[in-house]
């Protein structure tokens, strides 16, 4: 029977290596604003978590009676907007550059899952805010949730939504984003399409490589 520790060491070696996480050089094509979009998305997620921690420490409704917390709630709101904004730009960039080529399909899928999970993560946050938007969406969206057979998710239960938004969803999203970024670091970013005469016979997806 294989030595589990040895196998873990071999698998985790590249993942935990500083060479993977702190590169001192990048491919020449991966330069400029287009290659900042992923980092901007991740930075926005950090801003969401940071402002969210301050909100969680003070209470979800603290914005309604405390001006300082209202400002923190604003930073949380705009961090979420920034997160989705940069994520969309990043999505367009990776789509238009066929970023799944060269065995990077799983990186793409993890990014798509991150987007899917981010939607209810943000939504549960809207639900615990306590304003008209919370009220309206809790009542309206329950029909869709119930229709999908997810009736145990009670959108009008603020306690359940608080747990979902502050613990469950961010934890899942962090793991998915972490796995996505890990694959980006391990496999690097996709090289450009060949052009001109070199582009005559492209191979199917997944067959290319560096």
């Amino acid at each position: 029977m294989a030595n589990w520790t040895q196998t873990s060491k071999e698998l985790l070696g590249p993942v935990m290596s500083v060479e993977t996480w702190l590169p001192t050089e990048m491919p020449e094509y991966a330069q400029g604003f287009m290659y900042m979009l992923g980092s901007l998305t991740a930075s926005s997620f950090v801003a969401c978590v940071g402002s969210g921690i301050v909100l969680a420490m003070n209470g979800a409704a603290s914005w309604s009676y405390n001006d300082a917390m209202r400002f923190v709630a604003a930073t949380h709101f705009w961090s979420v907007q920034a997160f989705f904004f940069f994520m969309m730009l990043h999505l367009w960039r990776v789509f238009f550059t066929g970023a799944w080529r060269g065995g990077r399909g799983m990186t793409w899928v993890l990014g798509a899952i991150a987007f899917l999970v981010a939607v209810p993560t943000a939504f549960t946050g809207f639900l615990i805010n306590g304003d008209l938007y919370s009220q309206w969406n809790a009542v309206q969206a329950k029909d869709g949730i119930n229709a999908l057979g997810l009736g145990w998710v009670n959108l009008s239960n603020a306690g359940q939504m608080f747990g979902m938004h502050v613990v469950v969803m961010p934890l899942i999203l962090t793991v998915i984003i972490g796995a996505h970024i890990t694959l980006v670091r391990l496999k690097s970013v996709v090289p450009p399409y060949p052009t001109g005469r070199d582009a005559a016979e492209p191979t199917p997806v997944g067959k290319g490589g560096r």
Partner: peptide, 16 residues
């Protein structure tokens, strides 16, 4: 014979 180039340079980068 692939759908991506292979002849690119690595250039210095301050990732942090």
């Amino acid at each position: 014979r692939t759908d991506m180039v292979h002849d690119y340079r690595m250039v210095p980068e301050d990732f942090v």
